[in-house]
Amino acid sequence: MNSTEEIIISPLKEELIADINQTNDYFTVFGKVVPSFQSGTWSFEEKLFDDPKEIRFPDDQLEWSQYINNENKALFLAYKNNQCIGQIRIVKDWNRFCYIENIAAKKEVRGHGIGSLLLKKAEEWAQERNLIGMSLEAQDDNLGACRFYVKQGFILGGVDTMKQSYNPHIDTTLYWYKVFK
């Protein structure tokens, strides 16, 4: 893919619901974020794995019609040549942040600006609602995603070691924030 000019970002409509899980591709887990809290500030180091692995989240099964024409939640899909190549699902959270429930891009278009375009659309949506920023969660072993969030201006704002207790493969949930200037 050579240009993001051909990308169309569309809010969810009834006829696009079937496209939502098309962006749920495998991704490589190749390292983890090791957070540290000192003097009131979060920082982190990266630890690369000896054996990277491919994983995929289960397809989301939600009541998608709730994301259509809703003032407090939205889902935007990215298209190129009528193919769904990305999505971002967002909600207006109680703390006046736009909470990103999911962001995904097809494997073959990762690194080509689709995620950045989707985040820009989410930021516009949030600012139209006078929200103060954006937030999201990521697991500590999704280093690729965490690197992307940092590149997009997100900072680590918190850590939870209990949230994913049911899952023996996840140690820590990381909370990322981007505050609007």
Rank of each mutant, 00 (worst) to 15 (best):
N2Q: 13
N2C: 04
E5S: 13
I7C: 03
I8H: 12
I9T: 01
S10W: 01
S10H: 06
K13Y: 00
E15H: 12
I17W: 05
A18G: 11
A18D: 13
A18M: 03
D19Q: 11
I20P: 02
T23D: 05
T23N: 07
N24I: 11
D25S: 07
F27M: 07
F30G: 13
F30D: 15
G31Y: 10
V33D: 06
V33Q: 07
P35W: 08
F37Q: 04
T41K: 15
S43V: 00
F44M: 01
E46G: 02
E46S: 10
K47D: 14
L48D: 10
F49T: 10
F49Y: 15
D50Q: 15
D51L: 15
D51Q: 15
P52S: 08
K53M: 14
K53Y: 12
I55A: 02
D59G: 12
D60A: 14
L62W: 13
L62A: 13
E63S: 14
Q66C: 11
N69G: 02
A78H: 03
A78V: 00
A78Q: 06
K80C: 09
K80N: 09
N81S: 12
N81Q: 14
N81A: 12
C84W: 01
I85P: 04
I85S: 02
Q87D: 02
I88E: 03
I90C: 14
D93K: 06
W94N: 14
R96H: 13
R96W: 08
F97D: 08
I103C: 04
A105N: 08
K106E: 06
K106I: 06
K106C: 00
V109I: 12
R110L: 01
H112D: 07
G115S: 03
G115Y: 03
G115D: 04
G115H: 00
L118S: 06
L119W: 02
K120E: 13
K121D: 04
K121A: 09
W125G: 06
R129G: 01
N130F: 08
L131Q: 08
G133H: 04
M134F: 05
M134I: 10
E137V: 01
A138Y: 05
D141P: 02
N142D: 05
L143C: 09
G144P: 05
A145S: 09
R147Q: 14
R147Y: 08
Y149R: 05
V150I: 10
G153S: 09
I155C: 00
L156V: 04
V159F: 10
M162N: 14
Q164N: 15
Y166D: 14
P168K: 12
P168L: 05
D171K: 13
T172A: 09
T173H: 03
L174S: 05
F180T: 03
F180Q: 10
F180L: 12
K181R: 12
